[in-house]
Design a protein around this nucleic acid. Structure first.
Length: 573
RNA sequence: GCGCCUAUAGCUCAGUGGAUAGAGCACCGGCCUCCGGAGCCGGGUGCGCAGGUUCAAUUCCUGCUAGGCGCGCCA
């Protein structure tokens, strides 16, 4: 037997079909006017009600049909219900009720519950995945922090959101890849090299003025010391003979130093990029020239005041953008456009850029570029993350770059466990400001949502240890009678686990990792309620078997949702 | 001035064209001879303001108000 990946999906199809048939039958019998049929064919909505009292699925179809039927919504709903009661409809329907203003609510049968638990246990780690994306290529670019200093907390938020989004997209059947764009060719790196050079000279006892706009963090001196240790004579000789040669050496050295640092920090955070894309390599390949030539060929560039401009206003941007400055250098816009074109050339049909709140002005020019490339609207999606406020002891942590008082990503991860950091950073909508409570993230208590969820998983594992200790063979609960699970908390747990594939898909499609965070928390709550109400290991072998199977399915859902967030699922805590 | 984001319970936040708008925290009260009490159960006068679209608006549209961020030939 083929295992259905998403039972709810199948049930929805069944019931939609049943509803549609019932309406046709009513029209044929003259109990509803023909006008409603045309309307009903448009599609029949079925939703999962928030309130469990409203059943597993509900349809507002009668509300929409009331007007053209010239009947009260409840009367329409009751007619449909009566028709649905005729035999031959879906085996998953246990009961149909009309409620409220005219909703048709469906309670699903124990066959449905049994199929759900069986499918989850059979699919295991695959439960929640789908083929919705049909292998379409999606490139998610995030963090892309300039290689000139430590990463900040918004970079950490971007890393958690981006990485989780990639996991979600993969689960939803997309060919998703993560990318970090390395700005290794711009002026920023030159300034870093000059800053390091000043330190090098100082360390060598040579007087040298620190650059006005130089980077002042203590890490700059660390790089200088490391460079002197590693490059030794070569660097000293260059510094004495040819400052530019020394700067070039330091430029490359600093870059590698910081890239290594960024990779370590992100790696410790559980974020491995599929690719670190070098701007320098893009330039070396002539991609920027090609881009400009192509735009020029389309008549989308012009010269003014010694600079070359991109007519981005032709595609909805606020103002035109400079591509080549009057000093002959590119602005960042030119390589960035070339980079986005490169992404398309590599076969990605959807590009997602995750940016910090200070970069939202960037979207207009990139969107203009994508249109100039002839891409349909929606090819590029820009997710702007809002600010993060750190709270310590209930007070906002004041950060001032000027005073050198700011919490870096490394500081944060030293303070807070990785699992907690990742969870906290994704638990809010990306468009909302995020308050990050450092005390709570560190707390090993029920108040901490990460602990609460992980505890539910550990509890499942503990039950299996107990079962084993009690000598209950695994074979005894391989395929138990799920109909024995009659408690409210059991039904609720099944209902929620059945919704997991839809949740994964929604989170992926809406680019909303926070949905997964909330689902996991909610599901853990349902598990704890069940655990308190129902003792799993009892004197009744049949009931014990059914509950062990239920716990097994719950453990899978917990583990899979934690895994999608990059949070560990511990067996003991 | 223009652009983006936000406005929902005391606090932090969900939610969505549909039923009585939810969760956590905080506060009050219950629940352990038993699988991990790191838990569970109960307790609520809240959608910034004003119009519009709709059978139905917290949700969509318009205009206000308040807050955050941005508006460089920096990235």
């Amino acid at each position: 037997m083929q295992v259905t990946r998403n039972i709810m999906d199948q049930v929805r199809q069944d019931i939609s079909e049943a509803l549609r048939n019932s309406i046709s039958e009513l029209v044929a019998a003259g109990k509803l006017p023909p006008a409603v049929e045309a309307q009903a064919v448009q599609g029949i909505a079925l939703e999962a009600p928030k309130d469990p009292n409203h059943g597993h699925l509900a349809s507002p179809v009668a509300l929409g049909l009331a007007k053209s039927a010239r009947m009260a919504p409840r009367a329409v709903a009751e007619a449909i219900r009566d028709q649905l009661m005729q035999p031959g409809h879906s085996p998953y329907i246990e009961m149909v009720e009309v409620a409220g203003p005219g909703f048709i609510n469906f309670r699903l049968s124990s066959k449905w519950a049994a199929d759900t638990v069986r499918a989850i246990r059979s699919l295991g780690r695959e439960y929640g995945t789908s083929t919705h994306g049909a292998g379409a290529g999606v490139l998610v670019e995030f963090v892309s922090a300039n290689p000139v200093g430590p990463m900040n907390v918004v970079n950490a938020r971007a890393a958690a959101v981006g990485d989780t989004l990639v996991r979600l997209l993969k689960a939803a059947g997309y060919r998703a890849a993560s990318e970090f764009y390395v700005n290794d060719a711009g002026r920023q790196v030159d300034i870093l090299a000059e800053s390091v050079f000043a330190h090098v000279q100082q360390l060598r006892g040579v007087e040298y003025e620190f650059p006005e706009e130089g980077y002042r963090g203590s890490y700059v001196r660390d790089i200088a010391e490391k460079a002197l240790a590693d490059l030794g004579e070569q660097l000293g000789a260059a510094a004495d003979a040819d400052a530019d040669a020394a700067r070039a050496l330091l430029r490359e050295f600093s870059l590698q130093y910081i890239l290594g640092w960024q990779k370590r920090s992100l790696g410790a955070y559980g974020v491995e990029f599929d690719r670190w894309f070098s701007e320098k390599s893009l330039r070396a390949a002539g991609a920027v020239e090609d881009l400009i030539a192509s735009l020029t060929e389309q008549g989308l560039t012009y010269e003014q005041e010694g600079a070359l401009w991109f007519r981005s206003t032709a595609f909805g941007d606020d103002k035109d953008r400079v591509l080549i400055k009057n000093d002959g250098d590119y602005t960042y816009v030119a390589p960035d456009l070339a980079y986005h074109k490169d992404k398309l050339n590599r076969g990605f049909t959807k590009l997602i850029d995750i940016l910090g709140p200070d970069h939202h002005g960037y979207e207009g020019r990139m969107q203009a570029g994508l249109k100039a490339f002839g891409q349909p609207d929606g090819t590029l999606e820009v997710l702007i993350l809002q600010l993060v406020t750190l709270l310590r002891d209930g007070e906002p942590v004041k950060m001032s770059k000027r005073a050198g008082e700011f919490i870096t990503m490394d500081d944060l991860l030293e303070d807070v466990p990785v699992d907690a950091a990742r969870y906290f950073f994704i638990m809010r909508n990306t468009s909302s400001h995020l308050e990050f409570d450092l005390n709570l993230a560190k707390a090993q208590s029920m108040d901490n949502p990460v602990w609460y969820i992980q505890y539910a998983h550990a509890r499942c594992c503990s039950i299996f240890r107990q079962a084993e200790a009690a000598g209950i063979p695994a074979s005894s609960w391989a395929d138990p009678d799920i109909a024995q699970l009659a408690q409210a908390s059991e039904a609720e747990l099944v209902r929620k686990m059945a919704m997991f594939p839809d949740e994964v898909l929604s989170a992926a499609i809406e680019r909303a990792p926070s949905r997964m965070a909330r689902f996991a928390l909610d599901f853990a709550g349902a598990f704890h309620s069940f655990y308190t109400e129902c003792r799993v290991i009892t004197d009744d072998p049949g009931l014990t078997a059914a509950r062990l199977a239920l716990v097994d399915a719950a453990r899978t859902v917990l583990a899979n949702s934690l895994n999608l967030m990059g949070v560990s699922a511990p067996e003991r805590m």
